[in-house]
Amino acid sequence: MNIFRFAGDMFHLISILVLLLKIYATKSCSGISLKTQELYALVFVTRYLDLFTDFISVYNTVMKLVFIGSTAAIVWCMQWHPVVKRSYDRELDTFRHYFLVGACFVLALFLHENFTFQEIFWAFSIYLEAVAILPQLVLLQRSGNVDNLTGQYVFFLGAYRAFYILNWIYRYFMEQRFSRWISCISGLVQTALYADFFYYYFLSWKNNAKLHLPA
């Protein structure tokens, strides 16, 4: 465990807590893409298949349970909570995310570490995580203004992946064995997707203006 990875995990945890806070405090999920949350739930379920078979550490197991549990809670809230579900932007959240699932699965069938059930689903979850934010970014573009909690949510998600890239660079120099090209390349693609959001987020922060994404 190095500081970059720990910081990355904490940013990831904060991003999910910010989202839960927004939904719980405002009883509203406007501006949040349910499709992105569904993709993240699928990412965690397919990535943590080894949750009950390989014990790495208490930290590792607890974080996996928290990520799966909190994302499932957000998906449940946005679909079934009587008050929250009314504020879901159903007509704006129209990204066809099933294509992302299909494309990532096909890619995982060709690009993986080992041709085993667990490795293919792990590679699938890595690819899917890289593109899972797309429905959310499209929704933000369509809804124009970004309320600050949702903006912070995307910001922390981007920071989490950016720190993981620092973690891979660190491990590349510190460890002999480096066999995580799948995560590395996918993580770079994912962070690049955030770049434009970061640019507008930074501009709005610098001008102390409301964050507006160009339509």
């Binding site: 085993t116 667990q118 490795e119 792990w122 066999s179 799948i182």
Partner: peptide, 10 residues
């Protein structure tokens, strides 16, 4: 390497 992806990362 033969044991697949790094298991210790989230």
């Amino acid at each position: 390497d033969n044991d697949g992806h790094e298991k210790d990362e989230l």
